[in-house]
């Protein structure tokens, strides 16, 4: 429950900063949390209709009549760490949530494919906060990847100062030319622990999932032995590759993509007081290692030896003379 509250707080903060509509929140009418709502998705590139693209929406949080979000039970275990309040932070959050959805096999609140006009209308939704995930679609020799987004229903109509329960979005996307069947890419995952001084809290290992278009493709264990990292080679191009992890207790997670590397950063939440430092193993004053060979005794031994031999010879000679 504490986690849910924290998540909620983070989201709320972001949403207030993000949505211009929130500025006039106070003067607007109350929201009807049970009102039948709909989401229209218009997926087009200029004049080209991107039809046949499948979109799924997942309810992240319900909304109260005062416009507050209450995270759904499913998403309450997700302990995310969002830095910043810009579009990038939103993309990061959406992408991390997407991994969480795949990892847990959540059932979408609604799904469907865009029609010949590139339009999909999902009706019968409750007001709330939704994660909108699109699968890649190939149209006229290009594969289109819709960017996963977080959408609020209802949105405020700024002119009429009323809540609009039929929301329309145009997802952002990227596209690549369709490839030869044998085009491959590499993806890496790198874990960063942000828990200096509390390393003993870390789990011994972490399970990371790689998803291909939303389906589990591979599972790897990251630990000290593999330096908390892994590389997948020869992954087919033209698919959407994404990672998520088993969220370690007591840590928040942040997943970013830097080049071909997914960086999973876990930060410790509430540090316990640090353990008492171990007493130094060597109570003596530490010294730099001795990196010289023992050469100095060689001339000393040799010289002394010569002296002894000479003295012996002298003695023996003296003995004969007397």
């Amino acid at each position: 429950m504490a986690k849910a509250k924290k998540f909620l707080a983070l989201l709320l903060m972001l949403i207030i900063l993000f949505c211009a509509s929130a500025k006039v929140f106070a003067v607007s009418e109350k929201i009807d949390p049970e009102r039948k709502s709909s989401l229209e998705i218009i997926f087009r590139e200029g004049e080209k209709n991107l039809s046949g693209a499948e979109f799924s929406v997942y309810l992240i949080a319900n909304i109260t009549e005062n416009g507050e979000f209450v995270v759904t039970e499913e998403f309450s275990d997700f302990n995310v760490n969002i830095i910043g309040k810009n579009d990038e932070a939103w993309r990061e959050l959406a992408s991390a949530l997407e991994g969480f959805v795949y990892q847990n096999g959540f059932v979408p609140a609604a799904k469907g494919k865009t029609d010949s006009e590139g339009i999909l209308v999902l009706g019968g939704l409750k007001p709330g906060l939704y994660l909108v995930i699109g699968n890649p679609v190939s149209v006229d020799g290009y594969t289109y990847f819709a960017e996963t987004a977080i959408i609020q229903i209802p949105v405020l109509d700024n002119e009429k100062k009323v809540w609009n329960y039929d929301v329309s979005i145009k997802p952002k996307y990227s596209s690549v030319p369709d490839l030869e069947p044998d085009s491959f890419i590499t993806r890496k995952v790198l874990k960063i622990w942000n828990d200096k001084g509390y390393e003993s809290n870390r789990p011994k290992e972490i399970t990371v999932y790689l998803f291909c278009d939303g389906k589990i493709y591979d599972t790897v264990i990251l630990n000290e032995d593999n330096n908390w990292r892994y590389t997948w080679e020869k992954l087919e191009e033209g698919h959407q590759w994404l990672v998520s992890e088993n969220n370690p207790e007591g840590y928040t997670v942040r997943i970013t993509k830097e080049g071909i590397t997914f960086v999973i950063e876990n930060s410790i939440e509430k540090p316990k007081p640090p353990e008492k430092p171990e007493p130094p193993k060597d109570p003596d004053e530490p010294k730099l290692p001795q990196t010289g060979q023992l050469w100095w005794p060689v001339p000393v031994l040799f010289g002394m030896g010569l002296l002894f031999v000479a003295a012996g010879i002298f003695r023996r000679r003296g003995g004969y003379e007397k």
Binding site: P297, V298, P299, V300, L301, F302, M304, G305, L306, L307, F308, V309, A310, A311, G312, I313, F314, R315, R316, R317, G318, G319, Y320, K322
Partner: peptide, 19 residues
């Protein structure tokens, strides 16, 4: 003295061998 001389030579040789 002869014996002592031999002893010294032996010690000297041991030192040289150690070196």
């Amino acid at each position: 003295k002869n014996k002592r001389g031999t002893g010294l030579i032996i010690v000297g040789l041991i030192l040289i061998l150690s070196a």
